[in-house]
Structures are given as structure tokens and as C-alpha cells.
Amino acid sequence: MPTDQNPDPATTSHPHNGGVPRIQFEDVVKKFGSTTVLEGLNFSVDRGERVTLIGPSGSGKTTILRLLMTLEELTDGYVWVDGDPLTHDRRDGKRVELKPKQVSAVRKRIGMVFQQFNLFPNMTVLQNIIEAPVHVLGQSTEQARTKALELLDRVGLGDRGDAHPMQLSGGQQQRVAIARALAMDPEILLLDEVTSALDPELVGEVLGVLQDLAATTDITMLIVTHEMQFAQDVSDRVMMFDSGHIIEEGLPAKIFSDPDNERTRQFLQAVR
């Protein structure tokens, strides 16, 4: 598996979990009513690894991100984050649901950027960013504000802190959403089709921010995208999904130029 296997121990907050994967899906089953989306899915993601999930719509990619963010409930199986159970633990061989407080403790390590941005329209840009650091992490407003301004600078919006989301373009809103997720210092960042709702001319500015983020941090990223060039640029690994199963995975260079699986080949031809 092509990843940086030696993340700087000083920047990882769980050094005791040395050999444990950052994310592990174990026999994950997800059903919506009578429709089975994931049927016993197993995979793991290493620390600092960037993994892109590709595949036709309905293949379960977004469901995987939403399960990690606890926006959907697991039907069966386990999700582990740094070896810690996310929503269900195994005790004496039995599957036990965790309490909301325990879930929240692990979930705080995960951030998510959504297709529809989902900024809070009743708050300014700055309030959006400091809301969770102040009310979840317990930072002082001043502390959170300083950090928020740094992050806004980083996404190229240093002067828009007092604007309301509705006054910004889609691309700007999405960059604020990225800053908002980063303000929580996540170890894992989930990117769910973050450019799909944008006008074509605004896609570049958002991908630019993400490319910079990938180059300058060791945040683990799980990416669902239709931007194949971006996927190829930032990913360490690509997983091709079909009907809830990983049908092929490997280096982006390999998958995108010379996939082994006929289904992958067809899919890539169709999206290009």
C-alpha cells in the first residue's frame, strides 16, 4: 500500500496507536429499508493517507463518508478510528452500541466538507468558523478567532470574515466550509463531492485550496469526487466501488491509466 508510513509522531495525537490504521471498516453492512448498500465491507486507511473513492452513483461511496461522520447508522459491523470504536464496540464477542458522549469523543477527530457547503446562514463567516472550537473544544473566543483568521487567510478569504455566507460565491462558501472543518483540527477530513455544486469556473479555486492542504499537512483524507485529475494529483490510493464492493484498488496512476477491471475501465471512459 503506497502511503507515507512514518507520519511525524509530534503531529499525531495518538502516538500509542502506532501500527493501528487511522480508519478501519470491519464487516460493515448498511441497509436503507430493504435496499442493501454495503454488504460486509472491509477496508482500512493509514495515517496521512489520501484515498479517493470512485464508482457509479449508488455504489456506496458517499454512504461510507456519511457512516464515518455518524450521519447514517451502521446496520451491522464496526468502524474503528485509531483503533477506537466509532459507534459500536465489541465486548465479549458482542456488538454494543456506544453512548452519544463516547461517539462524540471519537467523532471530534473527523471533519467533513459537504457538496452543498452547509454553512450556517444566520452567522457570519467568522462565527461559522469559531462556533465549534468555542462550544465544542472550549477555546476562548479570542483564541478561536485568531486561528479562524489564519485559516481564512489560508483559503484566500482573509478579508471576508464579517460577510454572511449568502454574500459569497459558491466557491468562496466552500472555501469557508473547508476552513470551518479545519478549525476543529481534524485528523481525518472527509470530502464529499465538494465541487459538484459549483459553477465550472469556481471549481479550480476550491481544488487549489485542497491541493495546498494535501501538500502541507498530514491530514488523512477520504475523497469522493468526479474530478479525476484532482483525484490523481492528491491520492495515494484509489478505490473503485461497484454495488457496495471494492472491485479494484491501487495507485492512481495505475487505476486511471491502466485499470485491470473491465467495469473500472468502462466507468472511467464514461466520466471522462
Partner: peptide, 8 residues
């Protein structure tokens, strides 16, 4: 969902 993602 955004509120959940921020653990509010």
C-alpha cells in the same frame, strides 16, 4: 448534518 459534523 453540519452541526453533527462539528460535534455541536
Amino acid at each position: 448534518e453540519a452541526a453533527t459534523a462539528l460535534s455541536l
